[in-house]
């Protein structure tokens, strides 16, 4: 599939300058969701820079980022990989019929103690 999403689109949505990266790998070294991801934070930087956007958009990795900002905080070059992951995810869910989760999924996920905050967050992250 071709999404017609380009490097420039992702850079514009994210506001990230991938050229600042020195590929030290600290983002992937610190990422708490590393094992769950197919493509890791430093690969998002590399793959966006080199136009491999489709692969990222098709990967489950974009739903595994916890948005914990560890990569963003600890990056010695202030590249902000989390923003790239967010931008790729946005590029996917902004497309027609590409919501990753909707209100209809929620009843099945409810638990007694689950705070509203979790549901609101998920809707913001996974649905447009």
């Amino acid at each position: 599939m071709s999404n017609n999403i380009t490097t420039e689109d992702i850079l514009r949505i994210s506001g990230v300058d991938t050229r600042k990266c020195m590929f030290c790998g600290k983002c992937s070294g610190t990422c708490p969701a590393f094992d769950e991801m197919e493509y890791h934070p430093h690969q998002f930087v590399y793959m966006v820079q080199w136009g491999m956007i489709d692969k990222l958009m098709e990967s489950k990795s974009i739903y595994k980022c916890l948005t914990c900002f560890a990569c963003l905080e600890r990056c010695p070059r202030n590249v902000q990989p989390a923003k790239l992951i967010e931008a790729v995810r946005q590029a996917v869910i902004r497309q027609q019929g590409m919501n990753h989760m909707t209100e209809n999924d929620i009843p099945g996920l409810l638990e007694d103690k689950l705070p509203q905050q979790a549901i609101v967050s998920a809707m913001r992250k996974y649905k447009k």
């Binding site: 595994k64 914990c68 996920l109 549901i119 998920a122």
Partner: peptide, 19 residues
């Protein structure tokens, strides 16, 4: 100061449990 998993609990419970 490491992540508890946040909202991932809805998407991937084992990931939250690991954290």
């Amino acid at each position: 100061n490491e992540c508890c998993g946040g909202y991932i609990s809805l998407e991937d419970k084992p990931q939250a449990q690991k954290r």
